[in-house]
Design a protein around this nucleic acid. Structure first.
Lengths: 225, 225
DNA sequence: CGCGCAACTTAAAACAAACGTAAAATAAAC
DNA sequence: GTTTATTTTACGTTTGTTTTAAGTTGCGCG
């Protein structure tokens, strides 16, 4: 469900961390140092980072600093053998969210990870991407390479729902319930009309389509050519 | 600038906490136990809570639980003399964000408070810029290339809120809460009028605009051409 | 002490967009 | 080839927003 990047040069510790996190149901990615981490972040989705301070090439402070300067708001939990406040201070100054000293209690690590994810889920923008269509719920924007306009509310919500589970088929009733409310008096046909409006909007976005599943409903699909 | 509620029954510790926090520029409020804290929260604006576990009448766990169940997302830092993981676990389970064991290092407390405030998307920045519009909260100034005037208070606060998260949509209610206070009985339309005034002010600032999101609210947007 | 101005609120009218409906056109299934 | 499901178009209604204006409050200054 959540993707956690473990950045740690010591192989044993790295393995330990990934084992703990995997056992709790997280997907883990790994990097040996800051530079590797940046490379991983370029090509993968990461929800949270567990970061060692001491590493060759690029240490945890530098990595955090770079990320924050580039506007990243990813939750970062820093690990260090150092107990002293000066090191913690360094970490918090560059923008970490939590700091744990080694040796750490496994359970406490998991608790803190969970707390960070919970909070970041509250505040991070709900962003969805399917193909070249990007939707940002909080900013209320939908962009493709060719267009960038404000969708009307119903269309926006409809698209949001469809994009939230790409390829999954939603019945008209499901969509109605979600957008118009359970008691919706309205007709199924209303959904059709809004779907149609969405389609004309994305007519010239070749890698995205809303597909009809006859007898069932609709789904959002990405075409890679 | 930020209002922090200290909930702690021991008078000495309470005093210590408020002193540390005040020295760092926070406004502090206090409560002796959970019940008192609830009363304080009803009538005051609070950005973050520093919370002792052990208290008469209503302890920290119960208070946190009640708040979370009521939908509060306020950052909560829990303090306890107990070192063991079980107590931390209890805390995190009911929804705290951070846990510090007594005796704690003053500096670390301040660091963690700051990290929580940043993470919870409460703006620490008092100088904001969107496009060519620059706002300085302390100086109470707003400047663009073409104008440099003093805005009336409500307009200023409204703009501040909007600029604090560019592109993010704020509902009229959110804006009201921020500027007029939670209990404001006033009409939504008041917001509209002030938005309108702001718009006429920035009419000839081409790279800045307050955009309406129909059915939701407003957002501050930068146009780059 | 009260006059006058600025800031704010309220109300009302004008405006615009979004929405849902219906009906016609098209496509798929049997 | 007929039926059923879906798409498309058009239009009227509704709802939300903007704008204008008038009314109220509070404060500084004469």
């Amino acid at each position: 469900m959540f993707d956690i990047l473990v950045v740690e040069d010591n192989q044993n510790t790295r393995k330990l961390l990934t084992t703990i996190l995997s056992a709790d149901g997280y997907n883990t990615l790994t990097a040996n140092d800051g530079e590797e981490a940046l490379a991983v972040l370029e090509h993968n989705h990461v929800d949270l980072m567990v970061l060692d301070v001491m590493m060759p090439r690029m240490d945890g402070y530098s990595l955090t600093k770079i990320l924050r300067e580039n506007g990243s708001q990813m939750p970062i939990l820093m690990l260090s053998a150092k107990q002293n406040v000066a090191d913690k201070k360094n970490g918090f100054l560059v923008g970490i969210d939590d700091y744990l000293t080694k040796p750490f209690d496994f359970e406490e690590l998991l608790l803190r990870v969970k707390a960070l994810l919970r909070r970041s889920k509250i505040v991070t923008e709900k962003k969805l991407t399917v193909g070249s269509v990007k939707l940002d719920y909080d900013k209320y924007t939908v962009t493709t390479p060719t267009l960038s306009e404000q969708l009307p509310q119903k269309e926006f919500l409809l698209l949001f729902k469809l994009l939230s589970y790409p390829d999954m088929v939603f019945t008209r009733l499901q969509l109605m319930d979600e957008i118009w409310g359970m008691d919706a008096e309205s007709d199924d046909h209303t959904v059709n009309v809004h779907i149609n409006r969405l389609r004309t909007r994305f007519a010239d976005t070749p890698d995205f389509e809303i597909v009809t599943v006859r007898g069932l409903g609709y789904k959002a699909v990405r075409h890679d050519e």
